[in-house]
Amino acid sequence: MSSFKALASIPLSQVQTLRVNDVVEPLHLDSPATFVMTDFSRRSPRIIDSDTAVDETVRIMSKIHVRSKLVVDKNLNLVGIVNLADLLSRKVLMAANQKGIKRADVTVNDVMVKVAELHAVKLPKIQGSSIGDVLATMRTLGEQHLLVYDNDKHIRGVISAVDIGRALQIPLDINVTAHSFKDIFNVIHEHTELN
């Protein structure tokens, strides 16, 4: 038998007003960067296996309302990051065409941003920085995610551009940097198809 007990409650109809003076102040560019960091010492990272099918990943991410996941291999080593926008984009069809496989056989590994293409900042730097500093770093790097590592060089957290935009209640556009000729070709190919 469980040792947990139900808490006393009242019908919500008996609670009429909002206490607005207790509402947390909105974040701004000068707010501490740690306010938008997902800290893995407090919250487990959202992970997915690299060999998970793209359609299954979309289903999982949509069901739990997340836009990105860290990608791990069978030994739980970080190998990349995948975001919902990429999973719903032409990137999936291009990966299928390049590998000569059916779209249904495309995995997270085929569309993720590989760890070699990502950057990380040391935790004390983040602790002494503002959201604006992190945003400037992400724009300079051309990356949607910034990983945070601790003194032992373990990944301690992640900051995403989507989370910053949501926290500041503004749309953000980070121009993703191409890391290879293939990336440049894909960007040009997508741009010419849109025009």
Rank of each mutant, 00 (worst) to 15 (best):
residue 172 L to K: 03
residue 86 D to N: 12
residue 139 R to T: 14
residue 99 K to S: 11
residue 183 D to W: 08
residue 15 V to L: 10
residue 158 V to F: 02
residue 189 H to R: 15
residue 16 Q to Y: 10
residue 189 H to P: 07
residue 87 L to D: 02
residue 144 Q to P: 11
residue 127 Q to K: 15
residue 142 G to K: 03
residue 63 K to N: 15
residue 134 V to F: 06
residue 58 V to E: 03
residue 1 M to S: 14
residue 185 F to R: 07
residue 174 I to Q: 05
residue 97 N to D: 13
residue 116 A to N: 08
residue 49 D to M: 08
residue 116 A to Y: 03
residue 188 I to E: 02
residue 191 H to T: 15
residue 70 L to T: 07
residue 140 T to C: 04
residue 112 M to Q: 06
residue 7 L to V: 11
residue 96 A to E: 11
residue 32 P to F: 06
residue 171 P to E: 09
residue 72 V to P: 01
residue 108 V to A: 02
residue 182 K to M: 09
residue 38 T to D: 06
residue 166 R to A: 04
residue 168 L to Q: 04
residue 19 R to P: 10
residue 26 P to I: 09
residue 37 M to T: 01
residue 27 L to H: 08
residue 188 I to G: 00
residue 116 A to W: 02
residue 127 Q to Y: 13
residue 75 N to F: 06
residue 187 V to I: 14
residue 27 L to Q: 08
residue 180 S to W: 15
residue 60 I to S: 04
residue 131 I to V: 15
residue 5 K to I: 13
residue 146 L to S: 05
residue 178 A to P: 05
residue 98 Q to T: 14
residue 11 P to N: 09
residue 67 R to H: 02
residue 80 G to P: 10
residue 133 D to T: 09
residue 37 M to R: 04
residue 88 L to T: 12
residue 189 H to G: 01
residue 3 S to E: 14
residue 104 A to Y: 12
residue 42 R to K: 09
residue 59 R to A: 04
residue 62 S to D: 15
residue 104 A to G: 06
residue 9 S to E: 09
residue 108 V to M: 00
residue 66 V to T: 09
residue 158 V to E: 05
residue 2 S to E: 14
residue 14 Q to I: 11
residue 104 A to R: 14
residue 144 Q to D: 13
residue 171 P to V: 11
residue 112 M to L: 02
residue 76 L to R: 14
residue 21 N to F: 15
residue 95 A to I: 00
residue 48 I to K: 00
residue 107 T to N: 04
residue 191 H to K: 15
residue 10 I to C: 07
residue 123 L to C: 13
residue 37 M to A: 03
residue 113 V to W: 00
residue 194 L to E: 08
residue 79 V to W: 05
residue 96 A to Q: 07
residue 84 L to P: 01
residue 117 E to P: 06
residue 133 D to Y: 13
residue 64 I to K: 04
residue 39 D to L: 06
residue 122 K to M: 13
residue 60 I to R: 01
residue 49 D to P: 00
residue 169 Q to S: 13
residue 91 K to W: 00
residue 172 L to A: 10
residue 54 V to E: 01
residue 78 L to A: 02
residue 76 L to H: 12
residue 115 V to D: 09
residue 183 D to G: 01
residue 167 A to Y: 10
residue 141 L to T: 01
residue 29 L to F: 00
residue 176 V to N: 08
residue 8 A to Y: 11
residue 5 K to C: 01
residue 91 K to R: 14
residue 99 K to F: 07
residue 52 T to P: 00
residue 163 D to E: 10
residue 77 N to K: 11
residue 153 K to M: 05
residue 132 G to F: 00
residue 165 G to L: 03
residue 68 S to E: 01
residue 189 H to D: 13
residue 134 V to C: 10
residue 57 T to S: 01
residue 107 T to F: 03
residue 184 I to Q: 03
